[in-house]
Structures are given as C-alpha cells and as structure tokens.
Design a binder for these strands. Structure first.
Length: 609
DNA sequence: ATAGGGTTAG
C-alpha cells in the first residue's frame, strides 16, 4: 500500500501559499521551499496533476528549480512523457529553462526502456533553446546513446562535445568509453578514448572490460583485467562483476575461483549484483552446488538471484530441483517475471518434464498475468522437440497466436533431423532459407539433413551456395583450463605443440573404447567419405583432442572439465561415457546448451539433451 | 544534481 498525503491536507497547504497576496523575498523563498517540500512528498499521479495545476496558478512555471523537481517526480512516477508535454507545450516559456532542468529530463528519458531516443530529442531542443550543455549533460546524453546503441548518433554527440569545447572530466570520458563500447562497431573508438585518457580509478576499466564482455571478447576482457592489476588500479565490485561475467562466458572455473579469491583478499564489497554474478559464474562453470551454497548464504536476494540458480539447475539437468526452487520463490512472496519463467520452462525442457512445462506455461498467464513472449513459445517448442514430439511441436506452432521466429524454425528443423522427420525438415529448411538467405546456420541445417538422407549431391550443392555467398560454418571448438592457462582445440587441430602425442593418445583411447564395446557412430559424420575415414574424422573432434590432452597432463583420478562452443555430437557423447569408465575420470562437459556429468560410463543427462 | 555492474529460450 502506498502512503499518500490526504488531498484535504494538500489543498490546505496550497491555499496557505496562494493566499499570500503580496509576498516579500523571504516569503517567496519560503513559499518556494514549501512548494518543493510538497513536491517531495507527492507520490501518486493524481497528486502530480494537482501540483501541475498549482504551478500555473502560483506562477511557478518560470521557476526552473521547481520545474526540475517536478520532472524528477514525474520520472519517479513513470510519467516523464506527461511532464514533457507540460514543459514543451506551445504556451510554455522555455526562456527560463536552464541546463539543470534539461539534464533532468534527458536523464529521465535515458532511464526508460523504449523512450531513450527522446533523450536525444530533448538534447537537441536544449541546443535550439541556446542553453549551453555542461559537464553534467554529457554523461546522461551519452548514456541514452549507449542504450540506443547507434554509433553514428554517439559520434555526433562526441562531436558536439568537442564543439562546445568542454574540458572532458572523468565522468564525461568514462561515459564516452561506455557509449562507444555499447554501440555496434564502436569498441575501437572506445578503446582509443580509453587509451588516451588518464585513468585515476576503476571506472573506465570497468566500462572497457564490460564492453569486451558484451561483445563476447572474454579473453580480451580478462587480459585487460590483468593489465589493470599490473597498473596498480584497484578493482571494485563493479569491475569484479565484469571479470566474473568473462569467466562465466568462457566457462573458466579456475579463473572464476581466482577472481573470487581476489574479492576476498581485497575485501571488495559484496553487493547483491556481485553475489549474483558469483552464483551465475559457479553455476555456468560447472559447480552448481557451490552456486546453491552461495545462494543460501545470501541475506538479500533479488529475482535475478533466483533466476540464476534456477537456470543453473536447469543447465545441469536438475529440473525437479529447479521447479521446487521456483515454488519456494513464490512461497517467499517474490513476484516472478518473464525471465524466471524462461528459466523454469527451460528446466522442464532439459529434464523432459513436458507435463510440468505445459502446466507452468499456462500458469504464467492465468495466475501471474505475464503474457508469454516469443521466447516462452520458443521454450515450449524446444521442450516438445527434445522429447521427440515433433508432430506436437508442429501443431503447437500452428496454434501460436504470434508469428514464429527463425529461432523456433531452426529448433524444429534440427529436431526433424534428429527424430527422422527428414522430409518435413527439408521443406522447412528450404522455406527458412528463402526467408533468411544470408544466415549460414540455415544452410548448415539443410546440408545436415541432406547428409542424413545420404543425398550427397544436394548436400554439396548447398555447401556451394554457402561458399558463393561467402559464408562459413562456425568451427566446433573445445576449451580446457590447465595450470592457469586456457587451451582451445578445434577439430583436426595440428597447431598445438603436443599434437603428435595428442593424436597418439586419441588413437589409443579409440582402441580401448572399442575393446569396451564402443561403436563409432559414423552416421554423425556429415561427409561423403568411407567408413575408416569417418572414424578418423570422429577421432579428430575437438572434444576428443581436449580430453586426450587432459588425460596426458593431469594426475590420475582428477576430474576433467571441458567447455564446447557447440552442442555435443552423439558420437562424442557416447565416447566420453566410455572414457569416463575406462580411465576412471569424472568428466564435466559444458556444451552450448547444458552440462553433461560423465561418470562411471554414464551421463547425468540420461542421454536426453 | 553528473560516470561504471547482474539474470533469459535456440
């Protein structure tokens, strides 16, 4: 329940102010202070409307301070557009407006979800009104620009900053770095500003490291983080969050633990966000139990904390536990949002809980009034497809009230391939290519279907179309951490300095596995070559190279952690099960969508992925 | 009164 000033009281106060017919300076100041206090306690939209009327009645429409407070109140009440109309009506006298007032409006727009472009409109209007921007203007206007992500826009603001000859102080330069790092294609400009500025504190470092993380350049982010240490700049909790995100992206558990130890050593303030980043890092780097432990120890949790553990459990195939955590969250009185439902539905999807998934999909609309978005429909399609119910998925898509996106089509096409609906898959893939001819993933899907159908000439033709358009398949790669270094393997990799030993090890593994009953699934090889070459091809998959490398370089009995950039192929999946038993190793593999814990010849995913 | 951070299906 919101507390509001009773209307009667409000009117009495207003009347007291209005009735002073001849006011001295002191009285005027007093009435201004009184009005500001009144504004301060305004907390509903109808209060705001009353205040607006009074502003006109009392002649405060020429008082920029009062107008500024009015704007920030309106912003608090999500009514910035209302304040906008009031301030920029044809009758309003913009002659009295100052930079503080404009800055406040720009900031209010910058904070909105989809009204950010209006911040730039106000900025331009400010220039038209010949109000000079100051050093407080640029951080807010650049922040709006960063939110829009338009590089040209950002550059023109940068240009206007130079034109006004403001001496860029720290906040201005920091936001300039942030803006460039948030715009597509802008990171080099951001780096240039970053390199040329004097960096007195952690802020520009956080902006730059965060920029690399957002671009998926996590290795560069970590390099810069190390550079920061060398330069003797102390990272704060925000820098730590960015560094942890880089670890999460890489799946680098050891690196993540190192950051955690730095946090402890430097006694960095453990903000809610930092705890959330730690939870997410541990969950997505393979130690979901540690993530749960941290989650339980937190004294303040946000919806993000809950989402992180639920998604973490989902990735580890612990769907039932994810569901019970969701129920606990509801019992705790935390209001769910659309995002946590994505996590919950993906938990059901990864654990084959089709009925539960359907139940929660209905519940989100009926009980929590959250309208399912395309992502939620995507989860449902994925869930039906994983469970092998391709026909149900088709029916579901036909009944959907919104247009399916290409992600949903790709999910369906891939499911058609794995569940033998090849004709359907082919026609869907061809349709998708007609709609989206410049996306390589669509051609890869079609060519994989042709491979499965053994339609080699059609497959070759698809590949030729790709070549002609200059597209290339993303190569599969596997990452492994060893002695504080990150090693990356790609299929057939011969650049590693141990590659001969690795290939020998892979061959030995192959012999041992065959003795234990492993049959290479050569149907996974999407090439028209003979069976023996197919086996070689399988043995050169990046995953097997990484595991061989780990077996050679780590003590017997220790767990092996690997991270793949794509989904694990079914041959590598079955081979890894054998390896875990033969070599008595626990192998924890993260692929593009989930974790596989291999132990004693079995996988935690129960072959469901 | 001005700067920097977190979660999401495929």
């Amino acid at each position: 329940m919101q507390t509001s000033i009773p209307k009667t009281k409000l009117l009495i106060i207003l009347r007291t102010i209005t009735t002073s017919a001849t006011v001295s300076c002191n009285q005027r100041a007093a009435s201004e202070r009184g009005f500001l206090n009144l504004l301060q306690s305004c907390n509903t939209f109808s209060n705001l409307l009353q205040i607006q009327t009074q502003i006109l009645k009392l002649g405060f429409e020429n008082n920029p301070l009062i107008l500024t407070k009015f704007v920030s109140k309106a912003s608090d009440l999500n009514s910035i557009e209302h304040a906008h109309c009031f301030l920029f009506s044809p009758h309003s006298n913009t002659h009295f407006y100052d930079a503080f007032l404009f800055n406040t409006i720009i900031k209010a727009y910058a904070q909105t979800g989809n009204l950010k472009p209006k911040a730039l409109w106000v900025f331009n209007f400010m220039l038209e009104c010949r109000v000079l921007p100051n050093n407080f203007t640029y951080p807010v206007v650049l922040k709006a620009c960063a939110g829009i992500g338009d590089l040209n826009l950002g550059m023109s603001i940068h240009g206007s900053l130079l034109k006004f000859g403001l001496h860029g102080n720290d906040p201005v330069l920091n936001t300039l770095v942030h803006m460039y790092c948030s715009c597509k294609g802008g990171i080099v400009f951001g780096r240039k500003v970053f390199d040329e500025m004097t960096k007195n504190d952690s802020v520009p470092w956080s902006a730059m490291i965060g920029g690399y993380v957002r671009l998926g350049r996590s290795n560069d982010a970590i390099d810069l983080f190390r550079q920061m240490q060398i330069q003797g700049v102390c990272p704060d909790e925000i820098t730590m969050v960015a560094a942890l995100c880089a670890c999460t992206d890489l799946g680098a558990l050891e690196l993540g633990k190192w950051i955690e130890s730095l946090i402890e050593r430097e006694k960095v303030n453990k903000s809610l966000e930092l705890n959330n980043a730690l939870i997410d890092m541990f969950a997505k780097c393979g130690d979901v139990d540690k993530a749960l432990k941290l989650f339980r120890a937190m004294n303040e949790r946000s919806i993000v904390s809950w989402t992180s553990v639920i998604v973490g459990l989902a990735m580890h195939g612990r769907g039932l536990q994810a569901v019970s955590l969701f129920q606990e969250m509801i019992r705790d009185g935390v209001a769910p949002d659309g995002v946590v439902f994505i996590g919950l539905l993906s938990a059901c999807s990864h654990s084959g809980l089709v009925e539960k998934g359907k139940h929660y999909f209905d519940l989100m609309r009926k009980e929590f009034c959250i309208l399912p978005k395309i992502e939620h429909y995507g989860c449902m399609v994925d869930m039906l497809c994983r469970a092998g119910l391709v026909r149900d998925a088709v029916e579901f898509v036909q009944k959907m009230p919104i247009e399916p996106n290409s992600i949903i089509w790709r999910t369906m096409i891939n499911a058609c391939r794995t569940h033998g609906e090849l004709k359907l898959g082919e026609s869907l893939a061809r349709q998708l290519i007609r709609n989206e001819p410049m996306l390589e993933a669509n051609y890869v899907l079609l060519s994989n279907i042709y491979a499965k159908m053994s339609h080699w000439e059609k497959k070759t033709k698809t590949r030729e179309v790709m070549d002609k358009k200059g597209m290339r398949k993303i190569p599969g790669s596997t990452m492994i951490e060893l002695n504080n270094k990150i090693y990356k393997f790609v299929a057939g990799d011969m650049y590693h300095n141990q590659y001969k030993e690795i290939f020998e090890m892979v061959d030995e593994m192959g012999r041992e596995m065959k003795r234990a009953g492993y049959v290479p699934s050569t149907s996974e090889v999407m090439l028209d070559i003979d069976e023996e070459d197919k086996e070689d091809n399988l043995n050169r998959h990046s995953e097997k190279l990484a595991i061989a490398f780990a077996l050679m370089n780590t003590p017997p009995g220790t767990p092996i952690r690997i991270v793949k950039n794509l989904r694990v192929c079914s041959d590598c999946h079955s081979a890894t099960k054998f390896i875990s038993k033969i070599y008595n190793r626990e192998i924890i593999a993260r692929d593009r969508s989930r974790f596989h814990h291999f132990k004693d010849g079995l996988c935690s995913c129960n072959d469901f992925w």
